[in-house]
C-alpha cells in the first residue's frame, strides 16, 4: 500500500506540489527521492522574489555522498522558502511531504498543473525505475 499522498501532484524528477487553491503552490521532494539521497546535510533554497521556470533547477539537496538539483514543476515567482531547513535539513528525511516542504511559488499559469502526475501515475513511475 503506497503512502504517496493522493492530494498532491508530482513531477517525473521527483518533486511534489500542493495546489493551495489561491494561485500559489507549495513544493518539496518526494519520500522516494529523500530515500534515494539518504541523510540530507544541506539544502540550498532559492531566494524569495526569484522567478523559476517549469523544469528549471532552482534548489539543491545534498547528502554526504550526493548532491541533487531540485527542479521547479511550475513557472512562477518564489514567495516563501522553508528557512527551518537551513538548520534542520533532516526534516526532509523525516517528513518529506509535510514539514519538509521547500518553497512556495506564485503560479504564472495554473494550467501547468494539469501536466503533472497524480499519485498513482507517480507510484507507477517509481515502480518502473526500481527495475
Amino acid at each position: 500500500m503506497s503512502d504517496t499522498p493522493k492530494e498532491l501532484r508530482y513531477a517525473k524528477s521527483h518533486e511534489w506540489l500542493r495546489d493551495e487553491g489561491d494561485g500559489t503552490a507549495t513544493i518539496g521532494i518526494s519520500e522516494h527521492a529523500q530515500e534515494l539521497l539518504g541523510d540530507l546535510v544541506f539544502v540550498d533554497l532559492p531566494e524569495v522574489g526569484t522567478n523559476v521556470e517549469a523544469g528549471g533547477d532552482c534548489a539543491v539537496v545534498e547528502s554526504v555522498k550526493a548532491a541533487s538539483d531540485v527542479y521547479s514543476p511550475v513557472t512562477g515567482e518564489v514567495i516563501e522558502v522553508n528557512e527551518s531547513l537551513d538548520d534542520a535539513p533532516e526534516t526532509i528525511n523525516e517528513d518529506a511531504f509535510g514539514n519538509g516542504w521547500m518553497f512556495k511559488v506564485k503560479l504564472d499559469d495554473a494550467g501547468e498543473l494539469d501536466s503533472l502526475l497524480d499519485a498513482d501515475a507517480y507510484d507507477a513511475l517509481v515502480a518502473e525505475e526500481d527495475h
Binding site: 545534498e62 547528502s63 550526493a66
Partner: peptide
C-alpha cells in the same frame, strides 16, 4: 562537504 567537489558534483 564533498558535495561541492568534482567527484560528486561533476560539471556543477
Amino acid at each position: 562537504l564533498q558535495a561541492r567537489e568534482q567527484h560528486i558534483r561533476r560539471s556543477k
